[in-house]
Protein backbone atom coordinates (compact mmCIF):
# COMPACT_ATOMS: atom_id res chain seq x y z
CA UNK A 1 0.00 0.00 0.00
CA UNK A 2 1.28 3.40 -0.90
CA UNK A 3 2.44 5.59 1.94
CA UNK A 4 0.04 8.50 2.28
CA UNK A 5 1.28 11.91 3.34
CA UNK A 6 -0.16 13.35 6.58
CA UNK A 7 -2.22 15.84 4.61
CA UNK A 8 -3.26 15.51 1.00
CA UNK A 9 -5.23 18.24 -0.74
CA UNK A 10 -6.65 17.26 -4.10
CA UNK A 11 -8.82 19.19 -6.52
CA UNK A 12 -9.80 21.64 -3.77
CA UNK A 13 -12.16 24.37 -4.94
CA UNK A 14 -14.04 27.18 -3.25
CA UNK A 15 -16.45 29.51 -5.00
CA UNK A 16 -17.98 32.53 -3.22
CA UNK A 17 -20.86 33.70 -5.41
CA UNK A 18 -19.16 34.39 -8.73
CA UNK A 19 -15.63 34.59 -7.32
CA UNK A 20 -13.38 31.56 -7.50
CA UNK A 21 -11.26 31.84 -4.37
CA UNK A 22 -9.53 28.48 -4.61
CA UNK A 23 -9.34 26.67 -7.92
CA UNK A 24 -8.42 23.02 -8.27
CA UNK A 25 -5.60 23.12 -5.74
CA UNK A 26 -3.41 20.06 -5.05
CA UNK A 27 -0.56 19.61 -2.62
CA UNK A 28 0.74 17.19 0.00
CA UNK A 29 2.32 17.85 3.36
CA UNK A 30 4.58 15.04 4.56
CA UNK A 31 4.81 14.08 8.20
CA UNK A 32 7.34 16.19 10.04
CA UNK A 33 7.82 18.70 7.25
CA UNK A 34 7.30 22.43 7.04
CA UNK A 35 5.22 23.50 4.05
CA UNK A 36 4.74 27.16 3.23
CA UNK A 37 1.76 28.38 1.25
CA UNK A 38 2.70 31.68 -0.36
CA UNK A 39 1.19 34.01 -2.88
CA UNK A 40 0.01 37.58 -3.33
CA UNK A 41 -2.75 38.99 -1.13
CA UNK A 42 -6.15 37.58 -1.97
CA UNK A 43 -4.64 34.45 -3.51
CA UNK A 44 -6.92 32.27 -1.34
CA UNK A 45 -4.39 31.05 1.21
CA UNK A 46 -6.49 31.72 4.29
CA UNK A 47 -9.51 30.20 2.53
CA UNK A 48 -7.49 26.99 2.18
CA UNK A 49 -6.75 27.09 5.93
CA UNK A 50 -10.42 27.65 6.68
CA UNK A 51 -11.39 24.64 4.57
CA UNK A 52 -8.78 22.36 6.17
CA UNK A 53 -9.93 23.32 9.68
CA UNK A 54 -13.64 22.91 8.96
CA UNK A 55 -14.60 26.59 9.10
CA UNK A 56 -15.67 26.60 5.45
CA UNK A 57 -17.04 23.71 3.41
CA UNK A 58 -15.21 23.30 0.09
CA UNK A 59 -17.26 23.66 -3.07
CA UNK A 60 -15.44 20.64 -4.45
CA UNK A 61 -12.39 18.50 -3.83
CA UNK A 62 -10.91 16.36 -1.10
CA UNK A 63 -8.88 16.90 2.04
CA UNK A 64 -7.28 13.74 3.36
CA UNK A 65 -5.80 13.90 6.84
CA UNK A 66 -4.24 10.71 8.22
CA UNK A 67 -5.99 8.95 5.34
CA UNK A 68 -9.41 10.19 6.34
CA UNK A 69 -11.58 12.63 4.45
CA UNK A 70 -12.12 15.64 6.67
CA UNK A 71 -13.60 18.21 4.31
CA UNK A 72 -17.13 17.74 5.63
CA UNK A 73 -16.29 17.67 9.33
CA UNK A 74 -17.12 20.63 11.63
CA UNK A 75 -14.15 22.48 13.11
CA UNK A 76 -14.31 20.97 16.60
CA UNK A 77 -14.12 17.46 15.09
CA UNK A 78 -11.16 18.41 12.92
CA UNK A 79 -9.49 19.83 16.03
CA UNK A 80 -10.07 16.55 17.87
CA UNK A 81 -8.34 14.63 15.07
CA UNK A 82 -5.17 16.63 15.72
CA UNK A 83 -5.28 19.78 13.63
CA UNK A 84 -4.54 23.06 15.44
CA UNK A 85 -4.27 26.52 13.99
CA UNK A 86 -3.55 30.17 14.61
CA UNK A 87 -5.25 33.11 12.94
CA UNK A 88 -4.08 35.87 10.64
CA UNK A 89 -5.81 38.41 12.88
CA UNK A 90 -4.79 37.32 16.35
CA UNK A 91 -7.64 35.65 18.21
CA UNK A 92 -6.72 35.40 21.87
CA UNK A 93 -9.40 35.22 24.55
CA UNK A 94 -8.64 38.69 25.78
CA UNK A 95 -10.69 38.60 29.00
CA UNK A 96 -8.95 35.42 30.14
CA UNK A 97 -5.46 35.10 31.58
CA UNK A 98 -2.52 33.93 29.50
CA UNK A 99 -2.54 30.63 31.36
CA UNK A 100 -6.29 30.12 30.85
CA UNK A 101 -5.87 30.74 27.13
CA UNK A 102 -3.43 27.86 26.92
CA UNK A 103 -5.67 25.75 29.17
CA UNK A 104 -8.45 26.14 26.58
CA UNK A 105 -5.92 24.71 24.13
CA UNK A 106 -5.99 21.46 26.18
CA UNK A 107 -9.67 21.06 25.38
CA UNK A 108 -9.26 18.17 22.96
CA UNK A 109 -6.85 16.47 25.36
CA UNK A 110 -9.24 16.41 28.30
CA UNK A 111 -12.74 15.11 28.73
CA UNK A 112 -14.47 16.12 31.97
CA UNK A 113 -18.10 16.39 30.94
CA UNK A 114 -21.16 18.21 32.16
CA UNK A 115 -22.02 16.13 35.23
CA UNK A 116 -18.54 15.81 36.64
CA UNK A 117 -18.02 19.54 36.10
CA UNK A 118 -21.19 20.31 38.05
CA UNK A 119 -20.64 17.91 40.90
CA UNK A 120 -16.97 18.27 41.74
CA UNK A 121 -15.12 21.46 42.65
CA UNK A 122 -12.06 22.11 40.47
CA UNK A 123 -9.55 21.16 43.16
CA UNK A 124 -11.05 17.66 43.38
CA UNK A 125 -10.46 17.06 39.69
CA UNK A 126 -7.03 15.58 38.95
CA UNK A 127 -7.62 16.34 35.28
CA UNK A 128 -7.90 20.05 36.02
CA UNK A 129 -4.46 19.98 37.65
CA UNK A 130 -2.98 18.12 34.69
CA UNK A 131 -4.48 20.67 32.31
CA UNK A 132 -2.83 23.46 34.26
CA UNK A 133 0.55 21.66 34.47
CA UNK A 134 0.57 20.98 30.73
CA UNK A 135 -0.49 24.53 29.96
CA UNK A 136 2.41 25.86 32.04
CA UNK A 137 4.80 23.53 30.21
CA UNK A 138 3.68 24.88 26.85
CA UNK A 139 3.92 28.44 28.11
CA UNK A 140 7.55 27.89 29.06
CA UNK A 141 8.12 26.21 25.67
CA UNK A 142 7.35 29.57 24.05
CA UNK A 143 9.09 31.46 26.87
CA UNK A 144 6.01 33.09 28.40
CA UNK A 145 5.85 31.36 31.78
CA UNK A 146 6.66 34.64 33.52
CA UNK A 147 3.45 36.36 32.44
CA UNK A 148 1.01 33.49 32.96
CA UNK A 149 -1.42 35.53 35.06
CA UNK A 150 -1.64 38.62 32.86
CA UNK A 151 -4.90 39.16 30.96
CA UNK A 152 -4.20 38.05 27.40
CA UNK A 153 -5.75 41.20 25.96
CA UNK A 154 -3.13 43.38 27.66
CA UNK A 155 -0.16 41.76 25.87
CA UNK A 156 1.66 43.35 22.93
CA UNK A 157 1.01 41.77 19.53
CA UNK A 158 4.25 39.78 19.49
CA UNK A 159 3.32 38.04 22.73
CA UNK A 160 -0.24 37.46 21.56
CA UNK A 161 1.07 35.67 18.45
CA UNK A 162 3.32 33.50 20.63
CA UNK A 163 0.38 32.84 22.93
CA UNK A 164 -1.73 31.67 20.00
CA UNK A 165 1.03 29.24 19.04
CA UNK A 166 1.28 27.99 22.64
CA UNK A 167 -2.51 27.49 22.75
CA UNK A 168 -2.38 25.53 19.49
CA UNK A 169 0.58 23.45 20.69
CA UNK A 170 -1.18 22.64 23.95
CA UNK A 171 -3.49 20.41 21.92
CA UNK A 172 -0.39 18.42 20.93
CA UNK A 173 -1.53 18.40 17.30
CA UNK A 174 -0.26 16.28 14.44
CA UNK A 175 -0.67 19.19 12.07
CA UNK A 176 -0.20 22.84 12.98
CA UNK A 177 -1.49 25.56 10.69
CA UNK A 178 0.11 28.97 11.19
CA UNK A 179 -1.60 31.85 9.41
CA UNK A 180 0.97 34.62 8.97
CA UNK A 181 2.75 33.98 12.29
CA UNK A 182 5.29 36.76 11.70
CA UNK A 183 2.90 39.43 10.50
CA UNK A 184 3.21 42.57 12.59
CA UNK A 185 6.31 41.30 14.37
CA UNK A 186 9.61 43.19 14.50
CA UNK A 187 12.86 41.64 13.28
CA UNK A 188 13.82 40.20 16.65
CA UNK A 189 10.38 38.71 17.24
CA UNK A 190 10.34 37.27 13.71
CA UNK A 191 13.66 35.58 14.42
CA UNK A 192 12.27 34.12 17.63
CA UNK A 193 9.17 32.90 15.76
CA UNK A 194 11.35 31.21 13.11
CA UNK A 195 13.39 29.53 15.80
CA UNK A 196 10.17 28.39 17.54
CA UNK A 197 8.79 26.90 14.31
CA UNK A 198 12.05 25.01 13.93
CA UNK A 199 11.70 23.55 17.43
CA UNK A 200 8.11 22.59 16.67
CA UNK A 201 9.27 20.61 13.64
CA UNK A 202 11.91 18.87 15.74
CA UNK A 203 9.09 17.52 17.89
CA UNK A 204 7.67 15.80 14.83
CA UNK A 205 4.73 18.16 14.36
CA UNK A 206 3.94 18.85 10.72
CA UNK A 207 3.66 22.56 10.00
CA UNK A 208 1.72 24.29 7.26
CA UNK A 209 2.15 28.04 7.18
CA UNK A 210 1.01 31.05 5.25
CA UNK A 211 3.58 33.82 5.42
CA UNK A 212 4.62 36.94 3.56
CA UNK A 213 8.09 37.25 5.09
CA UNK A 214 10.04 35.57 2.28
CA UNK A 215 13.29 35.44 4.18
CA UNK A 216 11.60 33.44 6.94
CA UNK A 217 9.77 31.19 4.46
CA UNK A 218 12.85 30.36 2.41
CA UNK A 219 14.89 29.67 5.52
CA UNK A 220 12.61 27.27 7.35
CA UNK A 221 10.47 25.55 4.71
CA UNK A 222 11.02 22.12 3.20
CA UNK A 223 8.40 22.73 0.57
CA UNK A 224 6.90 25.91 -0.83
CA UNK A 225 3.56 25.98 -2.63
CA UNK A 226 2.89 29.17 -4.58
CA UNK A 227 -0.72 30.10 -5.31
CA UNK A 228 -2.09 32.97 -7.34
CA UNK A 229 -5.80 33.61 -7.96
CA UNK A 230 -6.51 30.37 -6.12
CA UNK A 231 -4.41 28.26 -8.48
CA UNK A 232 -1.16 26.55 -7.78
CA UNK A 233 1.50 28.08 -9.99
CA UNK A 234 4.53 26.34 -8.54
CA UNK A 235 5.64 23.93 -5.85
CA UNK A 236 8.97 22.61 -4.73
CA UNK A 237 11.91 23.34 -2.48
CA UNK A 238 12.58 27.01 -1.70
CA UNK A 239 15.49 26.99 -4.16
CA UNK A 240 13.38 25.55 -6.99
CA UNK A 241 10.52 27.93 -6.42
CA UNK A 242 12.73 31.02 -6.35
CA UNK A 243 13.92 30.26 -9.89
CA UNK A 244 10.47 29.52 -11.30
CA UNK A 245 9.57 32.09 -14.01
CA UNK A 246 5.84 31.97 -13.17
CA UNK A 247 6.57 32.79 -9.54
CA UNK A 248 8.83 35.67 -10.48
CA UNK A 249 6.11 36.96 -12.80
CA UNK A 250 3.42 36.74 -10.11
CA UNK A 251 5.58 38.48 -7.55
CA UNK A 252 6.97 41.16 -9.77
CA UNK A 253 3.57 41.71 -11.39
CA UNK A 254 4.46 41.07 -15.00
Amino acid sequence: MAQYPLLRISGLRKVFGGVIAVDDLDFDADTGSITALIGPNGAGKTTVFNMITGFLPPTDGEILFVERKIEKLPSHRVARMGVARTFQHVQVFSQMSVLENVMVGRHTRSKTGLFLSLLTPPFWRPEERRIEEKAREWLSFVGMEGIADRPAGSLPLGNQRMLEVARALAAEPKLLLLDEPASGLNARETLAMGELIGRIREMGITVLLVEHDMELVMEISDQVVVVNFGRRIAAGTPAEVQLDPDVIAAYLGE
Partner: peptide
Protein backbone atom coordinates in the same frame (compact mmCIF):
# COMPACT_ATOMS: atom_id res chain seq x y z
CA UNK B 1 -14.62 26.92 36.71
CA UNK B 2 -14.28 23.73 34.75
CA UNK B 3 -12.99 22.75 31.34
CA UNK B 4 -16.49 23.30 30.04
CA UNK B 5 -16.87 26.71 31.68
CA UNK B 6 -13.55 27.74 30.24
CA UNK B 7 -14.74 26.62 26.83
CA UNK B 8 -17.87 28.73 27.23
CA UNK B 9 -15.91 31.80 28.28
CA UNK B 10 -13.60 31.21 25.33
CA UNK B 11 -16.61 31.37 22.99
CA UNK B 12 -17.22 34.88 24.32
CA UNK B 13 -13.63 35.86 23.57
CA UNK B 14 -13.50 34.45 20.05
CA UNK B 15 -15.93 31.86 18.78
CA UNK B 16 -13.55 30.96 15.90
CA UNK B 17 -10.59 30.36 18.16
CA UNK B 18 -12.75 28.35 20.56
CA UNK B 19 -13.95 26.12 17.71
CA UNK B 20 -10.37 25.72 16.47
CA UNK B 21 -9.40 24.60 19.97
CA UNK B 22 -12.06 21.89 19.75
CA UNK B 23 -14.86 23.47 21.79
CA UNK B 24 -18.19 22.05 20.62
Amino acid sequence: HSRMGRGLRAIHGSEDAACAAGVH
